[in-house]
C-alpha cells in the first residue's frame, strides 16, 4: 500500500512553510524531496512522521490516517530528524538497545533488531563508547541504523547522508535502497544534493517555497535536460516568474 500525502498546509506564525503538498510514495521505493534551503522539506517530513501537526491535510498509510491515528501509526514508522543529536553519555550500543526495546514485540525480534543495528551502524568497537566521542558522521550512522534496524513500514530520513564521508555515503545509500526493496518499505528522504537524489531515489518531488513543483521518476523529471540541476533551475525560475505575474 502506498503512502498518500494530501494537501498539507503548515505555517509558523506568519511564515507559510508548506502550502498544499500532495504526493504518493510507493512501497519498496525511495521517494526524495528535493529543494533548496527553507523549501519546506523538514516541515513536510515532520508532519509525515507525526511529530508536527499540519494546519490541514492528511497522510494515509494502509488506510490509516497517520495524523489522526498517530499513536498506531508510530508502531510502523521511524524518523531520523535533520541533525539529530544523541544522548552524550550513552554508548551507541545503548542507543540501539533503547530503540530495540521500544519497537520490538518479543525477545527474538529485539535480538534481531540489535544485530541489524550494529551491522548497519558499522562503527566497530566505537559502538561501545559514549557517543560524546563520536564524530558527526558517526552519530548520523548510528541514527540511521537505529531507524532502519526496526524494519519500519515507513522510514523518514531527513538528509540521511549529511555530514557523512563519500565512502560511508555510498554505503548508506545502498543500504537504504536495499532496505526499501527487501522489506517493501516506503522510504522518504530529503536532500538538496541533486547528485545524491539521482543515485538514491526512485521517485522525486521538487519542492520550492512550500510548493511541490514537479513529481515523478528521475527519468520523467530529467526529460531532455542533461542533469537535475538544470531542471531545478528552470523550475525555480518559472516559479518566480509565475509569482511576479500574479
Amino acid at each position: 500500500m502506498p503512502l498518500y500525502v494530501k494537501e498539507l498546509f503548515k505555517s509558523y506564525g506568519s511564515t507559510v512553510a508548506v502550502r498544499g503538498i500532495s504526493f504518493t510514495a510507493e512501497e519498496g521505493k525511495v521517494f526524495g524531496l528535493l529543494g533548496p534551503n527553507g523549501a519546506g522539506k523538514t516541515t513536510t517530513l515532520k508532519i509525515i512522521s507525526t511529530v508536527l501537526r499540519p494546519d490541514s491535510g492528511s497522510v494515509f498509510l494502509n488506510a490509516v490516517d497517520i495524523i489522526r491515528m498517530a499513536e498506531s501509526a508510530r508502531e510502523f514508522l521511524a524518523y531520523v530528524p535533520e541533525d539529530a543529536g544523541t544522548y552524550r553519555n550513552l554508548t551507541g550500543y545503548e542507543h540501539l538497545e533503547f530503540a530495540a526495546t521500544v519497537y520490538a514485540r518479543n525477545r527474538d525480534e529485539y535480538k534481531a533488531f540489535l544485530e541489524d543495528g550494529i551491522r548497519i551502524a558499522d562503527l566497530g568497537d566505537k559502538i561501545y563508547e559514549k557517543t560524546k566521542s563520536y564524530s558527526k558522521g558517526m552519530k548520523r550512522r548510528l541514527q540511521i541504523a537505529r531507524a532502519l534496524m526496526v524494519k519500519p513500514k515507513l522510514a523518514v530520513l531527513d538528509e540521511p547522508t549529511a555530514g557523512i564521508d563519500v565512502f560511508h555515503a555510498i554505503n548508506i545509500r545502498n543500504l537504504i535502497k536495499k532496505f526499501a526493496n527487501k522489506n517493501s518499505s516506503i522510504v522518504i528522504v530529503s536532500s538538496h544534493n541533486m547528485f545524491e537524489v539521482e543515485k538514491l531515489c526512485d521517485e522525486i518531488g521538487i519542492i520550492n517555497e512550500g510548493v511541490l513543483l514537479r513529481v515523478g521518476s528521475i527519468k520523467e523529471i530529467k526529460g531532455d535536460n542533461s542533469d537535475l540541476e538544470e531542471v531545478f533551475m528552470k523550475l525555480a525560475k518559472g516559479d518566480q516568474m509565475d509569482k511576479s505575474i500574479r
Binding site: E71, R74, Y79, V80, E82, A84, G85, V102, V156
Partner: peptide
C-alpha cells in the same frame, strides 16, 4: 529539544 532527540521520541511508538 536542542539535540532533537525529543523529536525522535515523539515519532516513536511511545505514549
Amino acid at each position: 529539544q536542542e539535540e532533537k532527540t525529543f523529536e525522535m521520541l515523539l515519532s516513536m511508538p511511545l505514549k
